[in-house]
Write a protein that binds this DNA or RNA. Structure first.
Length: 474
RNA sequence: GGGACUGUGGGGUAGCUUGGUCCAUCCUUCGGGGUUCGGGACUCCGAGACGCCAGUUCGAAUCUGGCCAGUCCCA
C-alpha cells in the first residue's frame, strides 16, 4: 500500500493525500477553489458548525441570514474596505439577457450587506448591543494557489457582527470573542496564539485585527480565524446611529469575528499523522466505529455488534458499523486514515461474552466489558480527547523559538518570537528574512516564558520594543 | 501583468529525447463469481485514459502551432 508522504518534509503533499485517502472532500470539481463537500466531510463540518453555534450563542449572539448578493452602491461605501476586496469579488452583471442597472457582488464578507439594514434596525441605546452571526457561503476570487479548506474561492464562513454603544464596549466584545474562541479551540483540541496583526496586514476597514494562528509544521502557521474592532469606520459611511439616554445622536462601534472551514483543514494539519486524520471526539463524524470480525467457526458477531451500536447511540454517541466485505485489517487502515477516535473490534470471542476490544486512534488497545461497557467507552473517549490535546499542546510549545537577529530567521524551522520596534520598515525586513510574514504582536500569554524584549531584531534600536511573531502562513 | 514548467482510465504512473515494436505499461480503483476473514487476502472474469483543435507525415501519446486547464517563480 502506498505510504503517505512525510508530513514534516512535504506538508502540502501529505495534506492533499490525506484528504483524498479519507474522502473528506472531492477536489475534482471543475472550478478552481471550489470543492465538493462529500458525506464524510459534510458530517465533520456539521459538528464544527454545531460547536461554533453553541459557543457563540452562549455569549448572547443571535442567528441571522443575509442575502448573498450585494448592490455595488452599498458595497462601495467604505473606502478601505473596497480597496481591500475589489480585486477579489465576483460580479453578477446580468439577469438572463438583461444587463443589470446596478451590478451585484457575490458577498466576499457581509459588512456591506448587513450594515445598511443595521442602520434601519438601530434607533436607540436600548437596541444595543446588537450581536448577530450567520454561517453562510462567501466568495473570494483568490489569485494564489487554492487548497481544500485552507484557501478556497467559495468559503463556508462563520461571521459575527456586533454593534456597541462605544469603543469600550466594542473592546469588551472583542474580549468576549477571544473567550468564546478559547472554548471552541479547546473543544477542537487546537492550541493557538492570538496576535494583533500589523497595520499593513489588518482587515480592510478595521481599526485593528486580532488573528488566531496555529503553528502547523516548521515555521508554517494557519490562521484559524480573526476578530476585528471597527470603531466607527463602518458605522460612519453606513450611518448606523442611535439616540443616547441624553438625547444625543451617536455612531455605534462595531466588531466582527470570522471563522471558516479552515478550522477543518487545521484539524487535519495539527492532529494528523503518518496514518491519516485524527479527529477529536467532538468533531469526528463517527466517534466509534465497530468492526465485526466474522468467522466460519464461532458465533456470528453481527447480533452483538448491532445491539452494542444501539446502546451506544442511546447514550448520544455517533456510531458506525463497518459491515463492508473487506477484511478486518483493511477496515482498520481505512478508519485510521479517516480519523475515527475509537474502534471496537468484535469477533467470536467478544461476541460470546458481550465484550469488545477497543483501540483508540493513538494506538492504545484494551479489552472492555461486558460490565459497564457504555460507560467505559465514554470514559475512553474522554481520555482520548485529553491525550490528543496534551500531545497537540506539546507540539505547539515546541513550534516556537526566540530569535535575536535577522540571520536566525532565514530558513527557520520554528515560528519565531522577536523583539520589534513597531516600525513598518523593520517589519518588512523581518518578512524578507523569514520569507514569510510578521504575524503580529502577542495578545495575552506567550507560548514560551519571555523576558523583557531586547533591541529590535532589524534596526537594533533598544527600548520601546515589543514581542512579535514571525512565521510562514499557509 | 512578466516568466518557467506540466496535462496519459476514478487516483497515481511508464512511454515522449531518437514518430512505427502502443487497438498504450504497472500499481491502485470499480463491477461480477468463488474460497476467505483477529492488521492492507487469494483467484478467475470484466470495466476504464493519451486536455481540445489544426498541421507535418505513409504513420502522432511522441514533432509543430494555436487554444484551454493546472502548478511554480517574479512584480
Amino acid at each position: 500500500m502506498p505510504a503517505l508522504p512525510d508530513k514534516h518534509r512535504s506538508f502540502i503533499e501529505w495534506y492533499l493525500e490525506v484528504l483524498e485517502l479519507a474522502q473528506l472532500t472531492d477536489k475534482r470539481y471543475p472550478v478552481k477553489g471550489m470543492n465538493v463537500w462529500t458525506p464524510y466531510g459534510f458530517l465533520a463540518r456539521r459538528q464544527l458548525d454545531r460547536i461554533l453555534i453553541e459557543e457563540i450563542e452562549a455569549t448572547g449572539s443571535k442567528p441571522v441570514e443575509f442575502p448573498t448578493l450585494i448592490p455595488q452602491t452599498e458595497f462601495q461605501k467604505e473606502k478601505e474596505h473596497i480597496k481591500g476586496f475589489d480585486a477579489q469579488v465576483y460580479w453578477v452583471t446580468r439577469g438572463g439577457a438583461t444587463e443589470l442597472d446596478i451590478p451585484l457582488v457575490l458577498r466576499p464578507t457581509s459588512e456591506t450587506a448587513m450594515y445598511p439594514m443595521f442602520a434601519l434596525w438601530i434607533r436607540s441605546h436600548q437596541d444595543l448591543p446588537l450581536n448577530v452571526y450567520q454561517i453562510v457561503n462567501t466568495f473570494r476570487y483568490e489569485t494564489k494557489t487554492t487548497r481544500p479548506f485552507l484557501r478556497v474561492r467559495e468559503i463556508h464562513f462563520f461571521e459575527e457582527h456586533t454593534c456597541q454603544v462605544d469603543e469600550g464596549h466594542a473592546t469588551a466584545r472583542v474580549e468576549s470573542n477571544l473567550g468564546a474562541f478559547a472554548r471552541m479551540a479547546r473543544r477542537l483540541g487546537l492550541p493557538y496564539l492570538a496576535v494583533r496583526r500589523p497595520e499593513w496586514d489588518k482587515f480592510a476597514g478595521a481599526f485593528y485585527s486580532i488573528a488566531l494562528d496555529a503553528p502547523v509544521s516548521g515555521a508554517q502557521t494557519i490562521q484559524l480565524g480573526s476578530i476585528h474592532h471597527y470603531r466607527e469606520n463602518f458605522s460612519g459611511p453606513y450611518n448606523i446611529r442611535y439616540e443616547g439616554p441624553d438625547g444625543t445622536s451617536r455612531l455605534v462601534h462595531q466588531t466582527t469575528f470570522g471563522l471558516s472551514e479552515r478550522l477543518l483543514g487545521a484539524l487535519v494539519a495539527v492532529h494528523g499523522d503518518g496514518k491519516g486524520i485524527v479527529f477529536p471526539p467532538e468533531v469526528a463524524p463517527y466517534q466509534v466505529v465497530i468492526v465485526p470480525i466474522p468467522s466460519k467457526m464461532g458465533p456470528d458477531p453481527r447480533p452483538w455488534t448491532e445491539e452494542l451500536a444501539g446502546r451506544l447511540r442511546g447514550r448520544g454517541l455517533r456510531v458506525e458499523i463497518d459491515a463492508s466485505e473487506d477484511r478486518p485489517g483493511a477496515k482498520y487502515y481505512r478508519w485510521e486514515a479517516r480519523g475515527a477516535p475509537l474502534r471496537l473490534e468484535i469477533g467470536g470471542r467478544e461476541s460470546a461474552e458481550q465484550s469488545a476490544t477497543a483501540v483508540d486512534r493513538l494506538g492504545t488497545k484494551v479489552p472492555i466489558g461486558p460490565v459497564g461497557i457504555e460507560d467505559r467507552i465514554l470514559g475512553l473517549l474522554g481520555e482520548f480527547d485529553r491525550r490528543l490535546y496534551a500531545a497537540a499542546e506539546e507540539r505547539f510549545r515546541a513550534s516556537y523559538a526566540t530569535a535575536a537577529t535577522l540571520e536566525e530567521l532565514t530558513g527557520s524551522e520554528k515560528v519565531r518570537l522577536i523583539a520589534w520596534c513597531g516600525e513598518e520598515a523593520c517589519g518588512h525586513d523581518v518578512e524578507r528574512a523569514i520569507d514569510g510574514a510578521l504575524l503580529g504582536t502577542i495578545v495575552g500569554d506567550p507560548p514560551l516564558p519571555l523576558g523583557a524584549p531586547g533591541p529590535c531584531v532589524a534596526c537594533r534600536r533598544s527600548g520601546g520594543t515589543v514581542w512579535a511573531v514571525a512565521g510562514r502562513p499557509l
